[in-house]
Design a protein around this nucleic acid. Structure first.
Lengths: 204, 204
DNA sequence: GCTGGAATCAAACGATCGTTTGAGGATACG
DNA sequence: CGTATCCTCAAACGATCGTTTGATTCCAGC
């Protein structure tokens, strides 16, 4: 693709694609380095090991996702006129934007896969990077849904997360006719998710 | 465990556990046969290959799940007094019962993992076995939610499936204090899921 | 009791995995 | 020019993978 990109970035890009297609165990370093057009030993030279490469693939995307989510939340959090839909939009839109931007369209499939794979280490890595973000969103949800007990709120946020993850994992698989219709499709998906999640969270 | 069980069943039981813990690629036949207390070659002798073993693990549980779901649906489908919650209960309860019955408590983690892994073959296998069940449930949902367009209905059922899958993947991980509290916990989980899903499906 | 197919066993097969090695190329600085 | 540093490369390493083989054990049926 971009032969002028650095070796590290070429590896990261190819890794993201292959991990989404074949899984972390299923994608070998030989396939990966061949797709990236770099030498086999480059992965261990630049990243130390395959596991560290996996972590870097996640960190690169999650740092961006966390920043966008918190920025969107900061615009609405704590204000009296903020609606539940506003907070859900701040939670959902950055995730779908990430899943459909040019170079990272397959990342959410990687993320969805990570939720199921890798006994604990990767889940722990994700919760460490996600912990404070989820805590802030939870606090705002609690403010807007004072009727719900803590336990019920945790339950429903978890279900929203599940629906979002599931939707995102199948989001990149649609055929794009044009950039316009792709953006429209994303907007439609956000609308569906927000409406569904708002109703679910507000259930009696 | 049960040394009187047949070799085939000992393999299937051990495979279900190890696939849930390590993944399909991560669980080797040597670990698997050692845990089952059988010879390494027994898998290829009785199942032909590792892939066929994976299919058998799924088929054994999915046949049961499909039967329970259709039986529960048949009791309420088409009747005028049937509520949305009734249909959702028929959809959700058998899945959670399967995920917490004695020998198959880890199966839903396997299923959740399968949704992310294995490029297409396993997803295709699942859709073939699930297709007619989902079609019947979709028809009943359409009857109870006449306001929704086909497209919107498909969207929301997909989100419900995502929430359910996500909830089930973390369901077997709780510590069981006793069988009573475990049954109570399942009942509570069903109630949470049904309430959430009903509200989400009924959203304007 | 003998026989024949089913089942189990230890051992090995070739393939592929992640990782390491050591030599060589490229570039910047003295 | 010399050399130090970063990087790339082909090749090999040991380990582990799924699978196959051929001998051996088990056991029902004539």
């Amino acid at each position: 693709m971009n032969s002028s990109a650095s070796t590290k970035e070429r590896i990261l890009t190819a890794a993201e694609q292959l991990f989404a297609q074949r899984g972390f165990d299923g994608a070998s370093l030989r396939q990966l380095t061949a797709a990236a057009g770099v030498n086999l030993a480059a992965v261990n030279y630049h990243f130390g090991s395959k596991d560290r490469l996996v972590e870097e693939v996640f960190r690169r995307r999650l740092d961006s996702l966390n920043a966008h989510r918190l920025a969107a939340l900061a615009k609405v959090a704590g204000r009296p006129q903020t609606t539940l839909e506003d907070v859900l939009d701040a939670f959902i839109r950055p995730a779908l934007a990430l899943s459909s931007d040019g170079s990272g369209s397959l990342f959410m499939r990687v993320l969805a896969r990570a939720f199921a794979e890798h006994d604990d280490t990767l889940r722990q890595f994700l919760s460490e990077n996600y912990g404070h973000v989820m805590r802030q969103f939870t606090a705002e949800f609690a403010r807007l849904l004072p009727r719900l007990s803590k336990e019920e709120l945790y339950w429903r946020i978890d279900l929203v997360t599940g629906a979002l993850t599931h939707a995102m994992s199948g989001f990149g698989m649609i055929q794009r006719k044009s950039d316009v219709s792709e953006a429209a499709h994303r907007e439609q998906t956000v609308a569906h998710l927000v409406r569904f999640a708002a109703a679910g969270l507000s259930a009696p």
